[in-house]
C-alpha cells in the first residue's frame, strides 16, 4: 500500500474526519474566547458529560447493531438509577453493590424488551416507545410514593464524591500525574467503550449481532440464533443505559425521576455522527465517543460565546440533519462509481 493510498483511506475514514473536525472546533472556540480553555469549569465537566453521553450512545448503538431502535434508553437509565438509589437509601449497600444492582435492573429491563419484541414480532420502535411510556409512569410513581415531596433519593454512598469530583490528577506514576481535565467518570466510559468495541470487532457474539442486523433472514438460514441475539442486543442496551443513568446520578449527586429524560437525542447523535448505520449491520464504537465529544464541544463552545440554550438545540439538530444528508450524498457517489465499473 503506497502513501497516497494510505492518505486516501485515512481521509475516507469517518472517525479521522470527525476527530479533525472535533480538534478544529475545539481550537476555534478556544481562540474566540479563552474562557473555553478553562480546565475546571469548562473542559472537566465537558469530558465528564461526554463520558456519560458516550455510554448512552453505546446503549443505542447496541440496538442499532441489529437494525433496531431503543426509544426507552432514557427511561431504562432512570429505572436503573432508581434501583441503585433505592438500594443506597434503604439497604445501605456499598457503592459497588448498588451499582451492580442498578445494572442488573437495567439489563433485565433490556432483556424483557428484547423478549417482547421476539415473542410479539412487533417492531422495536413501538415496543420501546410503549416501554418508555410505561416506565415513565412507573418511575414517577415510585419516586412520589416513596420520597414524597423531595422526589429524589439523596443518600450518598461512600465514594460517590470521589467519582463525581476528582480527576486523574491524583494518580501519579513515577512523578508524572494524570491530566487534571480527565474526570474519574471517564474510567467507566473507557471500560464500556473497550468492552463493547472488543465485542463487536473481535468476538463471535459481535459478529452474530451484526449478521442479524445486516440480514436477518440470511443470518437465520446460516444457523445463527437470531431470536437470542435480538434479546442479547437489547440486554446490552439496557445494561449500558443503566450505567449511563447511574453515572449521571453520581454526577448530579442525587437520584431523581428526571434522570435520562434528556438522553434520547444524544443517544442517536453519538452513534450516527460516528458512522453507525441506522439499518443495522455496522457499528462505530470509538466513533460514538468522538461524535458525542463533537456535539458537546459545539454545545459548550456556543454556550461559552454566550449563546442561549435554544440556539444550541437548533445547532445540534442541524448537525444531525447535515450528518445524515452527507451520508446519503456519499452513498450516491459510491453508487455512481459502482455503476461506472460494471
Amino acid at each position: 500500500m503506497n502513501v497516497a493510498h494510505k492518505i486516501k483511506s485515512l481521509v475516507s475514514d469517518q472517525r479521522f474526519v470527525l476527530s479533525l473536525l472535533t480538534v478544529a472546533l475545539f481550537i476555534f472556540f478556544g481562540l474566540k474566547n479563552s474562557a473555553f480553555f478553562n480546565a475546571d469549569f469548562v473542559i472537566y465537566p465537558l469530558i465528564r458529560d461526554a463520558a456519560t453521553l458516550s455510554v448512552i450512545g453505546l446503549a443505542q448503538l447496541c440496538a442499532l447493531s441489529i437494525g433496531h431502535l431503543n426509544l426507552a434508553v432514557g427511561r431504562m437509565a432512570a429505572v436503573s438509577a432508581l434501583a441503585a438509589g433505592a438500594a443506597y437509601q434503604y439497604l445501605h449497600v456499598s457503592l459497588l453493590l448498588g451499582l451492580f444492582m442498578g445494572l442488573f435492573v437495567g439489563a433485565s429491563l433490556g432483556a424483557l424488551t428484547g423478549w417482547i419484541i421476539v415473542k410479539s414480532q412487533v417492531n422495536a420502535f413501538i415496543v420501546t416507545l410503549a416501554m418508555d411510556f410505561a416506565l415513565l409512569g412507573f418511575v414517577t410513581y415510585i419516586y412520589v410514593t416513596f420520597t414524597g415531596a423531595t422526589t429524589a433519593f439523596t443518600t450518598k454512598p461512600a465514594g460517590m464524591e470521589f467519582w463525581r469530583n476528582t480527576s486523574w490528577h491524583q494518580y501519579c506514576v513515577a512523578g508524572v500525574c494524570g491530566p487534571k481535565i480527565f474526570p474519574m467518570m471517564l474510567v467507566p466510559a473507557i471500560i464500556a467503550i473497550a468492552v463493547i468495541g472488543f465485542i463487536f470487532s473481535k468476538t463471535r457474539l459481535g459478529r452474530e449481532l451484526l449478521s442479524t442486523g445486516s440480514n436477518l433472514r440470511a443470518a437465520k438460514l446460516s444457523g445463527i440464533p437470531v431470536d437470542r441475539r435480538v434479546i442479547t442486543a437489547h440486554l446490552m442496551s439496557g445494561l449500558l443505559a443503566g450505567l449511563a443513568g447511574i453515572m449521571l446520578a453520581f454526577t448530579n449527586g442525587s437520584f431523581t425521576a428526571a434522570i435520562g429524560s434528556q438522553f434520547m437525542l444524544p443517544s442517536f447523535l453519538g452513534p450516527v455522527l460516528g458512522g453507525t448505520l441506522l439499518a443495522g449491520g455496522s457499528v462505530a464504537v470509538l466513533g460514538t465517543f468522538i461524535g458525542t465529544l463533537l456535539t458537546l464541544i459545539i454545545r459548550q463552545g456556543l454556550s461559552v460565546q454566550g449563546i442561549g440554550l435554544e440556539t444550541l438545540n437548533i445547532a445540534l439538530g442541524l448537525v444531525l440533519l447535515t450528518a445524515l444528508s452527507l451520508g446519503q450524498i456519499q452513498k450516491m457517489f459510491t453508487a455512481i462509481r459502482m455503476r461506472g465499473r460494471t
Binding site: L210, S211, S214, N215, R217, A218, L221, L277, G281
Partner: peptide
C-alpha cells in the same frame, strides 16, 4: 437459498 440477496448474503459484509 434461491433468494441470495434476501436470504443468502450479507451484502454489506
Amino acid at each position: 437459498t434461491e433468494n441470495r440477496k434476501e436470504e443468502g448474503l450479507f451484502l454489506d459484509f
